[in-house]
Nucleic acid binder design. Sequence first.
DNA 1: GCAAAAGTGTTGAGAGTACACCCATGT
DNA 2: ACATGGGTGTACTCTCAACACTTTTGC
Lengths: 238, 238
Amino acid sequence: MSATKYVSDFPIFSVTADLVVLTIRDDRLCVLLVKRGGAPFKGGMALPGGFVQASEDIERAAYRELEEEAGLKPEDVVLEQLRTYGAADRDPRGRVVTVAWVVLTADAPEPTAGSDAADAMWLPVDEVLGGSPVSLAFDHAQILADGIERARSKLEYTGLAAAFCPPEFTVAELRRVYEIVWGVDTLDPGNFHRKVMAIEGFLRETGNMKKEARGRPSRTYVAESGVPLHPPMRRDRR
Amino acid sequence: MSATKYVSDFPIFSVTADLVVLTIRDDRLCVLLVKRGGAPFKGGMALPGGFVQASEDIERAAYRELEEEAGLKPEDVVLEQLRTYGAADRDPRGRVVTVAWVVLTADAPEPTAGSDAADAMWLPVDEVLGGSPVSLAFDHAQILADGIERARSKLEYTGLAAAFCPPEFTVAELRRVYEIVWGVDTLDPGNFHRKVMAIEGFLRETGNMKKEARGRPSRTYVAESGVPLHPPMRRDRR
DNA sequence: GCAAAAGTGTTGAGAGTACACCCATGT
DNA sequence: ACATGGGTGTACTCTCAACACTTTTGC
């Protein structure tokens, strides 16, 4: 850190932007974690993130950290604010509040490639939060859990699932996203196809086809907008 | 202000908690606004709120401001975090980020009663944001709009509507809440009654009755929990 | 009795599910 | 030919909205 001192008439806070970066790799929902290089929690795992600079919009800081720590550019992702965590004792360094963001991406470059945090890695979320959970620094386990729940519920009533797909994708690829994120066995392919095609303004046909290893080639689509889905894709919660 | 100076190694932020306090008065959705007593925007209207103290949880600060500026106690309200606004230039005093909260309440005491801000008042939201909108300080117009939208959508899939009702209420009172907040003409009383009674774990009958000016007396209920509604109460968005 | 509001019954339209079936490709 | 996944058709179920109707009060 620099020797510069900052002075204020008001109680002093520092603000960080922390990121819950989610993607799908090998048919599993994965989150980007970094190994901390300094105190506190040195060597422990944490969400990527960092301090917001003095004259930087918080959202801009989130995009900057995303590029620095994950090598992801704004046009590769969907980013939205999750919530702010501000318990007085959440950071041993002092009074730090963090604004957390959920980031969805289809691009999943191995994060070691030329980034600040060479110790970044993708881990399946069910391993991080599951039976023998990975211990995360600060309150990051809570932030991660909140971020995953946000992503799950957003799939229901927005077209956000497309953010996990490449720019041009098939209905089956979109269906896999729903199955993986919701953790359900199999959505009926026929019904899913019809349902998703019935939603106005969600998918636009490209005219291209994509051949898989087996079976009939499928049409490809691009997501049209971020508008709410009508009707929504509801998950069963009996 | 005190003469105390605060010093830090990190970029300095101040953090405020701002409140979108909503209630229903005279069959209209109303928001609590205060007249600012100091610069900037002195004399202008703003959302109630204030600085978070140095060792105070942000949520606790929200409850404190709620009591100081509106005379409302935690048990009288439902409070939930809305989002954080952190544009670098949003406050002319310096780098201030605000964590905004949505507060729903049935109690609507006239706010002048013994509070810090004797200049607080309830205003109908459609007058504040409508045709000739009231000008609000900072980015508070945006915050208010976001808060109202949050309240509207929360009515669909949570039992939050009950927060606008007294502790013991009738199905008709609950129905008025939906009509007023969503701005719809009339929900069918019969269908609404059946729908709301079909939701597990939402309403518990008290055994009491309430007589209105006219018509058959109705049973009264208390809201049972904050659990999600299944099935949800969906609003039409044709 | 009449008006008004609570609450119930009935019915018809539409949405969702299960599943049969056809289509287009690789092997 | 046959296996595989894309995509469509069909019929049954369930939900929901419209609205008729009964109940219980005040006037």
